[in-house]
């Protein structure tokens, strides 16, 4: 399974919430990421998310979309980590950030 954000969602990803503007992280999570990762976990396959090819991301985009999987959608951290692969060649920092936000949301939920 594969999601290429620039092709499947938007080449200009937007702000955090739907109410803030177009192509938000919340919209991405609800319409693409959540159904895809849920299916990947259920089918025990890996979901590859390719974040390259866009005009750029805001810091809150990955926090809301990936961190929100745990914080707002109630998915388990271990299940996501086991079934997620991130491709980020253009800005390698995005890959680190995505795993950081997942861990952070998991740790915050533990408290």
């Amino acid at each position: 399974m594969r999601i290429k954000i620039s092709k499947d969602f938007s080449s200009t990803p937007g702000p955090r919430f739907i109410r803030e503007g177009d192509f938000s992280a919340e919209l991405f999570r609800k319409e693409l990421l959540l159904p895809a990762i849920t299916k990947a976990i259920k089918d025990n396959v890996v979901l590859t998310v390719d974040v390259d090819g866009t005009a750029g991301y805001g810091k809150s985009f990955f926090e809301e979309s990936f961190g929100g999987l745990i914080r707002d959608e109630g998915l388990a951290y271990d299940g996501i980590i086991k079934h997620l692969e991130v491709i980020s060649e253009e800005e390698s920092i995005h890959k680190e950030k995505i795993y950081y936000h997942l861990k952070n949301a998991h740790d915050a939920g533990q408290k």
Partner: peptide, 17 residues
């Protein structure tokens, strides 16, 4: 605009890289 900000940051980051 949001896209001005995100594309600007990306341009700086890829330029440095």
């Amino acid at each position: 605009f949001w896209t001005d900000a995100t594309s600007g940051i990306k341009r700086l980051r890829t330029g440095l890289s």
